[in-house]
Nucleic acid binder design. Structure first.
Length: 640
RNA sequence: GCCGCCGUAGCUCAGGGGUAGAGCGCACCCUUGGUAAGGGUGAGGCCGUAGGUUCGAUUCCUACCGGCGGCACCA
């Protein structure tokens, strides 16, 4: 039989070889370094025979798949360490993750941070012991019985409920003392995990992700193929902490949140300036794209929410208020029902479609306390919300038009790395399968026409229609949904929206719910983290600070600032009795893009000495030239 | 909402059964200095809130509120 290697070379074997034998044939060193083998794209243990002709890659620590092996091995090593130190802990599952691994344990007592240290120490010992990982195939029922006897009720339950009768299952031993039910694969021995790992935190996690189940304790760690990579990762985390929007929000005096208004933002002047720049640009883009901007009420009688279906499906998340005359009103959690009201007041002809109705809509939702997170997840937020009322035939072109606009806007803010998720029909849904087929294929065609890569998110669509989610990433790699685009056949029906078609009959419009920044709060949080507070000039709350060297230049500094302001720039002056070193340091820390230094010389010559953020060089320009040049540099992205 | 950890000055943090400390920031004074911290003096705290234990609690215990990290949630 024939084994094909990644470089195209082929090796012939008499008998089905194991991965190790293939590696040995290529070279001793490779066989020594090998962790697992990749057979036709599937990772397997080195000792398993490769039954037929296949493309084979030997996975060594530098291979892109090595980390998941190392991390998975590390999870097993940790589980052994935990059970040795804490025999009352039951094991459940421990997979690799994007940066490490975790393992969920059931135990009555919580693990402390001291426990973590002990566990980590024991893990190093297990790695040094270099115990072989041995794969064994067991009978399902015997395995279930075995784990029952051991008191491992979660493992036993998983086998009984998750694995069909009669199926064979695999377990992995590491040394003589410990084993775990596991699909594998694993490296040859625990020694291959190496020492580039670190336990990071303990937290709660529900058994099988279901909050009705018992809560387990999750110990999470990070693991890498080398100390160097581990240290790089830890350094990255430190750097990420410095760009956390909550920290920068304080340091740059952008906003704060306090106890008396949990989940709501106090925007300070600088933060609000930033917010307004974002809003201004998005508004201009919407105008260009033919949207009609509206404003709808904050408080709306429950009667409308009952009709829209929100009272039924969304009530838990709605803030309500009772008026003097005993009406129950709700703070709107969404804008859509209000927009349909406007549509119903006069958009009656097919000639008006597609009708794009936009609102910077303030919404309130009673989010679970544990979900709140700085500006990322709040209870009061403003969406760049819009609803496009259109015919089914227009879904495709409107979606494409929207995606184009979204990408242009994201790019303007510096986001090039946009992840798109396609969420299709959920189990419980409204509308017939035929309608869903139509909506999903229209959406799919449209997203494919944009050429954007996307991943499927099966079953995660809204109950009323499929959606596209546009996801941006924060400083430490957490994904946040910002943009969205949803097809809705249900709400127009519920709220009785219609128009007169070409044929003279009444028809139901389709509604496309769409947002680009999503919530301004979340978007600005990501903007802060993406730029680490060093905003592009057009967004910077303060664009230029005019700083004096001596008080003799105060008058001139004021004139210079005034001239810059007249060019539309956001300018502050720093006339304090401080040395220029001190001022430069402070304004650099405040991440002001340009410091214009003026002393007696500049006052005399009517010049400014410009110092750009991140550069130590200065550039002396005539004041008039500086005004022109900085004015151009501060221009927002073109909208035309 | 759940599990764990945390809550001391505007910020970062030390302390600890006998009602508190540092650095930075702030105010005032000296200094007018040419590109990342000049010097001095001073103000500033219900030690998250409410109970309990104690002769005495900021410190120990309980509950609540809030924050952080996960989990769940994100229509």
């Amino acid at each position: 039989m024939t084994i094909t290697l990644p470089d195209g070379n082929q090796l012939a074997f008499e008998q089905p070889p194991t991965g190790r034998e293939v590696a040995e044939r290529i070279g001793k060193r490779l066989a020594k370094d090998a962790l697992v083998v990749k057979v036709d794209g599937e990772l397997r243990d080195l000792d398993q025979p490769i039954p037929q002709d296949a493309r084979v890659e030997i996975v060594t620590p530098t291979h892109q798949d090595a980390r998941q092996i190392i991390r998975h091995d590390a999870a097993h090593v940790m589980a052994e360490a935990v059970q040795e130190l804490f025999p009352d802990a039951q094991v459940t599952f421990g997979p690799p993750t994007e940066t490490g691994f975790y393992y969920d344990f059931a135990r009555a007592h919580p693990f402390s941070s001291d426990d973590l240290e002990k566990i980590e120490k024991r893990m190093h010992e297990i790695v040094d012991a270099d115990k072989p990982f041995v794969r064994e195939v067991w009978d399902r029922d015997a395995a279930a019985h075995f784990f029952d006897q051991k008191g491992e009720k979660y493992k036993a339950q998983h086998i009984r409920e998750g694995i069909p009768k009669g199926e064979q299952i695999t377990i992995y031993r590491q040394g003589d003392d410990w084993l775990d039910l596991c699909r594998g694969p694993h490296a040859p021995s625990t020694g291959r995990v190496g020492h580039a790992f670190k336990l990071m935190k303990v937290s709660g996690a529900y058994w099988r992700g279901d909050p009705n189940n018992e809560q387990l304790q999750r110990i999470a760690g990070t693991a890498w193929e080398s100390e160097k990579r581990l240290n790089e990762y830890l350094t990255m985390l430190e750097e990420a902490e410095k760009r956390d929007h909550r920290r920068l929000g304080r340091e740059l005096d952008l906003f704060h949140i306090q106890e008396e208004a949990v989940g709501s933002v106090f925007w300070h002047p600088k933060g609000w300036t930033l917010y307004r720049q974002v809003e201004k640009y998005v508004r201009a883009m919407q105008e260009r794209e033919g949207y009609h901007e509206v404003k709808t009420p904050q408080l709306i009688d429950r009667a409308l929410w009952e009709r829209s279906g929100h009272w039924d499906k969304f009530r838990e998340a709605m803030f309500t208020a009772r008026s003097e005359d005993d009406h129950v009103l709700a703070l709107k959690p969404m804008n859509c029902p209000a927009h349909v009201q406007i549509f119903n007041k006069g958009i009656t002809s097919y000639r008006d479609l597609p009708y794009r109705m936009a609102e910077f809509g303030s919404c309130h939702r009673y989010e679970p306390s544990g979900a709140l997170h700085g500006l990322m997840r709040v209870r009061a937020f403003t969406q760049d919300d819009a609803h496009i009322f259109c015919t089914p035939e227009q879904i495709n072109s409107e979606t494409q038009k929207f995606c184009d606009m979204l990408l242009e806007i994201y790019k303007a803010f510096g986001f090039e790395d946009v992840r798109v998720k396609f969420s299709d029909r959920p189990e419980t849904r409204a509308g017939s399968d035929a309608v869903w087929d139509k909506a999903e294929s229209a959406l799919k065609e449209a997203i494919e026409a944009t050429g954007l890569p996307y991943t499927m998110n099966p079953g995660e669509g809204a109950f009323y229609g499929p959606k596209l989610e546009f996801v941006l990433r924060d400083a430490i790699g957490r994904d946040w949904q910002c943009g969205t685009h949803q097809v809705d056949f249900v709400l127009p029906e519920r709220l009785d929206a219609d128009y007169v078609g070409e044929d003279g009959n009444k028809h139901r419009p389709v509604m496309l719910h769409r947002a680009i920044v999503g919530s301004f709060e979340r978007f600005i949080a990501i903007l802060i983290e993406e730029h680490a507070g060093r905003f592009p000039m057009w967004l910077a709350p303060v664009q230029v600070t005019v700083a004096t060297i001596t008080s003799a230049a105060d008058d001139y500094a004021k004139q210079a600032a005034q001239a810059l302001r007249q060019a539309g720039l956001r300018v502050e002056t720093d006339l304090r009795n401080e040395k220029i070193n001190y001022k430069v340091r402070e304004h650099s820390n405040q991440k002001v893009p340009v410091i214009a230094v003026v002393g007696e010389r500049e006052a005399q010559e009517r010049t400014v000495a410009l110092r750009r953020l991140g550069s130590k060089q200065q550039e002396v320009l005539a004041l008039d030239d500086a005004v022109t040049r900085l004015g151009e540099e501060a221009a927002p992205p073109k909208v035309d």
